[in-house]
Every structure is written in C-alpha cells, then in structure tokens.
Amino acid sequence: MTEPLAYLLFGLAAVVAVWAGALTVLNRRVDNPLFYAAAVVEVALVATMVGGFIALATTDRDVDGVTFSGYLLTIVLILPIGVAWGASEKTRWGTGVVVIAALVVMVLSWRLLQIWQGTSV
C-alpha cells in the first residue's frame, strides 16, 4: 500500500464523487457512463485488495493485519452495494447514494495508507 496507489484510489473515487455530485445537482439518475466509471474504480479496488493481501502476507513490518484486512474487504464492497442501492432509486437521490459511496471509498483509501504505514490506529 504505497502512497501513489493511495492517491490514485483517492483520486479515482474523487472523480466518481464529483461526477455523481454533478449529476445529482442536475437532477439526473444513475446513468451508464457513471456506472462504467464506478466499475473502473472497482477494478482498481479489487486489484488493490489482492495486492494488499499479498503485501500483508509478505511484509516483515509490524502491520495491524486484522484492521488492514477489514479495510481491504470493506473497500471493495462499498461501491457495488452503493451503486446497486442508488441505481434502484429512479431519482436524483439514487445518484446521491453513489456520491456517499465514493466519499466512503476516498476515506477508506486514506485510512488504508495510514494503517499500512502504522501512522494511525
């Protein structure tokens, strides 16, 4: 879990958050482009999870493994659940749910980095 990777995830999720936020303001439902954008972020998150577990298993540093694993599992679940919950509401509020989900991914990617570096409990 390197800093560039955390910044990449944070940035990708931020793009989705801003995009979904704009659609919410414009009174638009979750559309296909937003769905695909979220899917791209999700691919990056799944890759991060796999890489994260490998890194956790091979590192010789003292990392809080339970918390780190919990965050890795959570971060890949947030977007699919958020998009599913949001897309089934056919108003702007469904798009707003995607904003929340993307914001949570941003926070989690930041926390993942902190936990990996041991800078915060």
């Binding site: 958020g82 919950w85 509401e89 108003t91 509020w93 469904g94 707003g96 749910v97 989900a101």
Partner: peptide
C-alpha cells in the same frame, strides 16, 4: 425513497 435513499445509505 427519495432523500431517504441517501439517509439509509
């Protein structure tokens, strides 16, 4: 429904 969607989330 509506804003409640976000609240539940």
């Amino acid at each position: 429904s509506g804003p409640g969607r976000i609240l539940v989330a």
